[in-house]
Amino acid sequence: MSLDYTAAEMMTVTAARALENGTTCFVGIGLPSEAANLARLTHAPDVVLIYESGTLQTKPNVLPLSIGDGELCETALTTVSVPEMFRYWLQGGHVDVGFLGTAQIDRYCNLNTTLIGDYREPKVRLPGGGGAPEIATNAGEVFITVKHSKRTFVEAVDFVTTVGFGRDGTARDGVPHIGRGPTRVITDLCVMKPDPETKELVVVSLHPGVTAEQVREATGWEICFAERLETTPEPGEQELEVLRELKARTARHHAGNEMGENA
């Protein structure tokens, strides 16, 4: 039996499945937050979600628009100060997985959320690093989820906001107390993992119906494929139902206090 689902749903469900039950996860806003909460509402009821606003073990009923929505605080076990969050909980080694999005990513999993172009004369100024630079190095490992396109998957990022494995794949070598770094990248086309030796991203699994050619065309470098390339399992009925309900609830909630939407 095959269900109807979108590429975006395939991405979110696959990203959610990456989170094991009982994991402590430091969650980025947007796609990572959607995936982490889907995990919590399906196979991983005991996953611990932490947001950088200080909300520990939060269980939002709707997805937050911002990293500090009241919903996160109201449904958290407790809320700590932002210095405590970064110093004790993240740097102190209590986070298993950092779950991040990005604007650009390169073959060594370096992330750029700072700018396109030159730093002093940017073509496009992006928001910046936020929590990501230290989440990526102080969490046990890092999952990245982002839509696949040539604009995002570039040969070399314009600026390393957040390190994956550096410009040559060796940035973590010999650094004490550093996490394993990115261990998987989940897109709407495929799943990638860094090669254990070179740290270059390799496609390990194509989503159903996606061809290797499609991935090549959406990637800004000559992407490698694993010898034993797998097909990502399809989303299940229950996962799709929960995801759609969560998104519908979220849309209703954020439309609830509509004011000057078209101003």
Binding site: P133, E134, T161, V163, A171, V175, H177, I178
Partner: peptide, 20 residues
């Protein structure tokens, strides 16, 4: 936090590999 503590600087395990 360092400002509140009256210290001249803050120390952290941070910015590893970043261009910042």
């Amino acid at each position: 936090e360092a400002g509140a503590a009256g210290l001249p600087l803050a120390v952290l395990r941070g910015y590893v590999g970043s261009d910042l």
